[in-house]
Design a protein around this nucleic acid. Structure first.
Length: 475
RNA sequence: GCCCCCAUCGUCCAGUGGCCUAGGACGCCGCCCUUUCAAGGCGGUAACACGGGUUCGAAUCCCGUUGGGGGUGCCA
């Protein structure tokens, strides 16, 4: 069996949540791998150790799963491979491509300032022939001349003069290798062919490439692809403070995973035929790294919600009901015991056509489950206060009509005819005629179709609400 | 400061020298449909940052300017 043409990897560091940018990176890696029939490996970059808590890592797995991203083979944890990295540093030391340095960060900084503000290490210990010792680190010996060139699928050839790179640290004074080392070693060890990550890592790439070449000059260079960043409306990298950056935020808002994945795929890429909303297999089929855009992309929640609404509408009704469950039982505007699944399901198809996110679902049906509807002030003002005479007329007509609809007569068609018949006979526009009744019964000027709503609410409760509204009408 | 990346409608994506009086999508506006709101249909608004080249011809190639972003750690 020959090695697959594509072995990509997603290598998050566990930070407590899955960042949108990370999710997109994971997705593009996954698309690349699946498109090529290759593999996607997962690697947890927790060399820093502090944040390497199992529950944080588990959250990443769960969120990737939610998005529909699967991976191949065992997950690699860098925290368990420290020896490998140390060994790599030893080899670099032995071959003279790395050296021990006794400079403290403060000393490095002080000399840089004395030099005239140029930050960075000056190569102070390069040829001092130091060995290990308290507070010593290992640095990589970067060539003084020449360029380090990376071939990027998206950006083409990017050239970094070696003279601009200072001798960076490979091994901390604590004896723990830096992430560059771990990164290079693991990509080599895991036989990664495609390194796909955010553009913010582009500048770190020469270091990784340098280590890689020093470690194994014969290994073919991997294909790089630096994805454009996802930015906020200020065109800056999404910040945790100001933006909703965690995928969990969108899950909580009732974004469907298939909508999120579809939208994320559209950030920096578009299908050749321009059809944006489509099943993931079709995206996999059409995706190509070479077609990824270079410029950063704004995360447009309005478009996400449009796509989400489309996916919601396409759901079979029972699926819609199912997926709405969470929002019908958590932080609801009605007491739990008043909720009725049967009544919700009657309205569900109409709600499904109207919501953009699942979190909007309760707002469309709350009037059914509340003892009294939440009265929206603006709606009351517009409909009841502006034209109280018409409101009174319609409420009275509805009350009289509905009182007559006893027993089996309480039917959708009759509920409709009662009001519409009156409106037509008296030359009142249907639009104006229904408004006071809607506000009286649901509290709002907008909502699901009225007659169905009233039917579900029931005759007694409808009449009660109509009478309450009539009483509250300004004279 | 230095290094790197980027630059088409408000936003996302098409466009890879002539098919572009620049196309699609979201948003926005208007009309139609309609008991509200959605959905749907129809129409509209709106962009090649600027300046030089190259070329018979440039949104597309080159250079510069400007603007934006990212990176400059014993974080990843």
């Amino acid at each position: 069996m020959s090695a697959p043409a594509v072995r990509a990897r997603f290598a998050p560091s566990p930070t407590g949540y899955l960042h949108l940018g990370s999710a997109r990176t994971a997705l593009f890696n996954w698309l690349t791998a699946r498109h090529a029939g290759g593999e996607l490996l997962l690697r947890i970059e927790d060399t820093d150790a502090e944040r390497s808590k199992p529950e944080l890592i588990d959250l990443i797995f769960r969120t990737l799963g939610w998005l529909g991203i699967d991976w191949d083979g065992e997950v690699v944890h860098q925290s368990q491979r420290a020896d490998l990295y140390r060994d790599a540093v030893e080899r670099l030391l032995a071959s003279g491509q790395a050296y021990w340095c006794s400079c403290t960060p403060d000393e490095v900084k002080a000399r840089a300032e004395a030099r005239g503000g140029k930050p960075g290490y000056d190569g102070h210990c390069r040829d001092r022939g130091l060995g290990p010792g308290d507070g010593h680190v290992v640095r990589f010996r970067v060539a003084d001349d020449g360029d380090t060139v990376i071939h990027d699928e998206i950006r083409g050839e990017v050239r970094f003069p070696n003279a601009d790179l200072d001798d960076f640290v490979l091994l901390r004074s604590t004896g723990v290798a830096m992430f560059h080392v771990a990164n290079a070693v693991d990509d080599l060890d895991m036989a990664i062919t495609h390194i796909i990550r955010g553009e913010d890592l582009l500048n770190a790439t020469p270091k990784i490439l340098l280590i890689r070449q020093a470690l194994d000059p014969a290994a073919p260079a991997p294909t790089f692809a630096h994805l454009p960043l996802i930015v906020n409306e200020k065109r800056q990298k999404l910040s945790k403070r100001r933006d909703d950056v965690a995928l969990e935020d969108y899950i909580a808002r009732g974004i469907l995973p298939e909508a999120m994945a579809n939208y994320l795929a559209l950030l920096g890429w578009g299908p050749p035929d321009g059809v944006e909303i489509r099943p993931m297999p079709e995206i996999i089929e059409r995706f190509a790294l070479a077609d990824v855009t270079k410029a950063s992309a704004f995360f447009d929640v309005a478009k996400l919600e449009h796509i989400n609404a489309t996916y919601i509408r396409e759901l079979p009704v029972d699926q819609f009901v199912n997926r709405s469950t969470h929002w019908l039982f958590t932080d609801t505007p009605w007491p739990a015991e008043r909720f009725s699944a049967e009544r919700f399901e009657l309205l569900a198809p109409m709600v499904q056509e109207r919501v953009r996110t699942l979190s909007e679902v309760p707002g469309y049906v709350d009037f059914v489950f509340q003892a009294d509807p939440t009265r929206d002030d603006a709606s009351w003002e517009k409909v009841m206060v502006k034209d109280p005479a018409l409101a009174r007329r319609m409420l009275e007509a509805a009350i009289a009509g509905y009182e007559a609809l006893e027993g089996d007569a309480w039917q959708l068609q009759a509920i409709n005819d009662t009001v519409i018949g009156y409106a037509d006979a008296n030359e009142i526009s249907r639009k104006k005629a229904q408004a006071p009744i809607r506000v009286a019964v649901t509290g709002r000027a907008v909502g699901p179709p009225l007659w169905e709503s009233i039917e579900v609410l029931g005759r007694d409760e409808t009449l009660r609400r109509l009478r309450v509204a009539l009483d509250d009408l300004p004279s």
